[in-house]
Simulated assay, not measured.
Amino acid sequence: METVNTAVTAPHRVRMTPAGRRILAAAERLFYARGIHAVGVDLIAAEAGVTKKTLYDRFGSKEQIVVEYLAGRDERWRALLAERLEAAGPAPRARALAVFDASRDWSAEHGAKGCGMVNAHAEISDAEHPAYPVITAQKAWMLGLFTELARAAAGAGAADRLGRALMLLHEGALVAHGLKVFPDAFETAREQARALLAAG
């Protein structure tokens, strides 16, 4: 899979225990369904079947739970995407289109309310928040990936322009899907991406 250097320092992560995994699983469900600010540590602890003391012992703060939630979601997305790019084979255009297919399938299972990173950014705009670099690095990584895929498909001269266009189509599909603006947002974006790739 393409490797993209985002030049962002990796966030601090915590070592997971069984209780930590229960807490994080509960937080992931609640944060995505209700929003980060709407969910307090009392509710997370209750859903996980632990005390607040255990929660703070494992994570230290709600902010660290948010970091783990977003970083974990990003890791799972990148793992799925690596599999899909590998399965797409060496053809550059097929690999670029595989990103849209992967997002369609990911969103069907994990993204009924749209992109978790976009949703989180709507609530976390403070660059000093420990989760902020996780959000921005994920999007920078995606742009880097699309740029590398565009370079392979159309050459260095078109890489930046085409990579940004593919990124815009992809992000637009994520938002349109989450807002249910129209059906088949990913298919629409994929067809537009196919046309752009064909034109170079």
Rank of each mutant, 00 (worst) to 15 (best):
A185I: 03
Y32R: 11
A102R: 05
V181E: 06
V50K: 04
E47M: 13
S61I: 01
R151Q: 12
A193S: 03
G35L: 00
E28F: 03
Q64G: 10
A193E: 03
N5I: 10
P92M: 09
L55Y: 11
A45P: 09
G40K: 11
R21H: 05
G163F: 00
A38Y: 02
L145C: 05
E63C: 02
E63L: 06
V41H: 00
G60K: 02
A137V: 08
L197E: 04
A127H: 12
A87E: 15
A122Y: 11
G144E: 03
H37T: 05
G116R: 15
V39M: 02
E83K: 06
V99F: 03
A198L: 09
R78T: 09
R76Q: 14
L169P: 07
P18L: 02
L145K: 02
G144T: 06
L81T: 12
A25D: 15
A82L: 05
R34K: 14
A91F: 01
E68G: 08
A19W: 02
P183T: 11
R29D: 11
V118K: 03
A198C: 00
Q192S: 12
T3Y: 07
A165Q: 09
F186Y: 14
L166P: 09
Y132W: 15
I44H: 04
L149P: 02
A137R: 03
A108S: 07
A82K: 12
F59E: 08
A27P: 08
A120F: 09
K53Q: 13
M117T: 00
A102S: 14
A199L: 09
D126N: 15
K139Y: 12
G72I: 02
R58L: 07
T9C: 06
V66W: 05
V67P: 06
R104D: 13
G178Q: 10
A159G: 06
A19K: 14
R13T: 13
A45W: 05
C115D: 08
E128W: 08
A156M: 09
G40F: 03
L143N: 00
L162V: 01
T54M: 06
A88S: 09
E2P: 15
D42P: 04
R76L: 13
Q138V: 07
R104Y: 04
Y32I: 05
L162G: 00
E28K: 15
L174G: 01
N5A: 14
G40R: 13
K180A: 15
L149I: 10
L43C: 02
L80E: 10
N5Q: 14
A94C: 01
A152R: 05
Y69Q: 00
P90G: 09
T136S: 14
A140R: 13
T147I: 10
W106H: 14
K52T: 13
L85V: 02
Y32T: 02
R73Q: 07
I65M: 11
C115G: 08
V8K: 06
F100N: 12
R84D: 14
A195F: 08
G89F: 12
L197S: 07
A150Y: 01
P90D: 14
A26L: 11
A25V: 12
L145Y: 09
V50E: 05
V39C: 07
R95H: 06
T9P: 00
R58G: 01
L168C: 04
A96G: 02
A150Q: 03
